Simulated assay, not measured.
Amino acid sequence: MRYAMMICVDESEAGTTTESSDDNGMQEIYAWFEKWAGAGKIADGGAELQSVSTARTVRGAGADRSVTDGPFIETKEAVAGFVILEAESLDEALEVASTWPGLSYPSVAVEVRPTVDHSGDMG
């Protein structure tokens, strides 16, 4: 089964690290991907997202459609990226997610959710 692993951060904490620690953090993330891809647990590498300041939200359709700046979520945390995991169970997906290197920062959280498979619905 596939699970979405969403990496959530408090963007107000951005910029509080040094360039050296950022480089080390990226090396840890690359090693994490290498480890779990080799174990067959990464179904899709996902993507890192730009800041919420670049986001736009669409609501409604047709004449009722509106586009606004930002996500306007009532939370400090925003999704900064995602990975699609392949795991036998939610517990296994949580085991993989709990090793995410960014969890050493207090402003980082990882949310894991099963995905819905619509592949049989297309024909």
Rank of each mutant, 00 (worst) to 15 (best):
T54E: 09
D64F: 06
G40H: 12
A31C: 03
W100F: 10
S98M: 00
E95S: 06
A80Y: 07
F33R: 04
D121Q: 03
I7M: 05
G15I: 12
L90D: 02
S12A: 11
E92S: 06
G120L: 08
G62K: 02
G60T: 04
V96Q: 02
L85H: 04
W32G: 11
R56T: 09
A80N: 12
E19L: 13
R59M: 09
E74W: 14
T57K: 13
E77D: 07
E28T: 10
F82A: 06
L94I: 14
V9L: 04
A31D: 14
E28G: 01
V67E: 08
L49Q: 08
R65Q: 15
D117H: 00
S12K: 01
V67M: 08
E13S: 13
W100T: 08
G123L: 01
G40P: 11
S107N: 15
I42W: 07
W32I: 05
E74Q: 08
G46D: 05
E74D: 06
Y105N: 10
S21C: 00
D22S: 03
G40M: 12
D22Y: 06
M26T: 08
Y105E: 00
T68M: 05
G45P: 13
S21T: 04
A97P: 02
I42H: 01
D69C: 10
Q50S: 13
G123K: 03
Y3L: 07
A61R: 15
S51K: 06
N24I: 10
R56Q: 08
F82C: 15
D117V: 02
E11D: 10
G15L: 12
V112Q: 01
A39S: 05
D23E: 07
M5F: 02
G102Y: 09
Y3R: 12
Y30F: 14
T54G: 03
F82Q: 10
T16K: 03
N24M: 15
D22P: 04
V108L: 04
V112L: 02
D10I: 05
